[in-house]
C-alpha cells in the first residue's frame, strides 16, 4: 500500500514513516507542507495520504484544505487527517457529504500502534475513522436540551458513538463483549428512535448518524 505523509515536524514525520514501514506500508513520499503534499499526491497517486492540519506555508488550516482538494480530485485516495486538536467543524467539512475513505484523528492516537494501523486499513478499505473526541462533542451537543438522543439508553448511546466513529458491528460486538446479533438489534432500535433509514454499508451509516447528530444540536 503506497502512502504519502505530510507533517512539518521532522521528528514526527520520521516516527510516522518508521511506524508505517514496520506495518507493511510503502511510504513513497514524506513532505513538510501543503504545496509539496499536492505535488507528491499528483506524482505518486498514493492509496493513502496522512496529513497534519497546521503546516507551512500559511500555518493555518493548510493540511485540511489540501485534504479536501485531494478528496475532490482523487476520490480513490484515502485520507487520514491528524491534528493536535480536533473540532466538529473540520470533521463536517472533511466528510463533505461522503464518509468513505476518510479519517480525522488526534495526533496522539498514533501511539496505540495496533489501533492506529487498524484505523488506517479501515479507511483505505472504504471506511471511516472519526476520533472519539469529535464523536463525544457531537453526542454531547445533540444530547443537550430536549432531544431524542437523550432518551436513548446508555448502551444505545455507546453503540451510537461507535457507529459514528466508523466502527463495524463486528468490532462493536467484540468491544462490548456482545454478539453481533445483539449489536444489530441495538442499531436497529437506534435507527427507529432517531427515525433514520437502515443504511446499506458502514460508511453510509456513519454519514447518516453524523448528519443526524450535527443537525439536532440543542
Amino acid at each position: 500500500m503506497r502512502v504519502v505523509i505530510a507533517e512539518d515536524e521532522v521528528l514526527l514525520r520520521q516516527g510516522l514513516r518508521l511506524l508505517l514501514e514496520e506495518g507493511e506500508f510503502d511510504v513513497v513520499a514524506a513532505v513538510g507542507d501543503g504545496d509539496e503534499l499536492m505535488t507528491a499526491v499528483g506524482a505518486h497517486r498514493p492509496d493513502l495520504v496522512i496529513t497534519d492540519i497546521r503546516m507551512p506555508p500559511s500555518n493555518n488550516d493548510e493540511g485540511l484544505r489540501a485534504a479536501r482538494r485531494i478528496r475532490e480530485q482523487y476520490p480513490d485516495t484515502a485520507i487520514v487527517v491528524l491534528s493536535q486538536y480536533v473540532q466538529r467543524r473540520y470533521a463536517i467539512e472533511l466528510l463533505d457529504g461522503r464518509a468513505a475513505r476518510v479519517g480525522y484523528l488526534l495526533k496522539q492516537r498514533i501511539a496505540d500502534i495496533t489501533a492506529f494501523r487498524d484505523d488506517l486499513h479501515r479507511v483505505v478499505d472504504g471506511g471511516t475513522a472519526l476520533d472519539p473526541e469529535i464523536v463525544a462533542v457531537l453526542m454531547s451537543r445533540a444530547g443537550r436540551g430536549a432531544g431524542v438522543v437523550r432518551e436513548l439508553t446508555p448502551r444505545q448511546r455507546e453503540v451510537l458513538a461507535y457507529m459514528a466513529e466508523g466502527r463495524s458491528n463486528a468490532w462493536i460486538g467484540q468491544k462490548l463483549v456482545l454478539t453481533e446479533k445483539a449489536i444489530v438489534q441495538h442499531t436497529s432500535n437506534i435507527y427507529d428512535a432517531l427515525g433514520l433509514p437502515v443504511a446499506a454499508d458502514d460508511h453510509r451509516r456513519v454519514l447518516a448518524v453524523i448528519r443526524y447528530l450535527d443537525g439536532v444540536a440543542g
Binding site: 473540532q87 467543524r89 462533542v137 454531547s140
Partner: peptide, 19 residues
C-alpha cells in the same frame, strides 16, 4: 486555541459553543 490560530474568531467561538 487551534481554531483561533487556524481560522479566526468565528470558528473558535463555534468550538467553544460546541463544547
Amino acid at each position: 486555541p487551534a481554531a483561533l490560530v487556524e481560522r479566526g474568531l468565528v470558528l473558535a467561538a463555534e468550538d467553544l459553543v460546541d463544547r
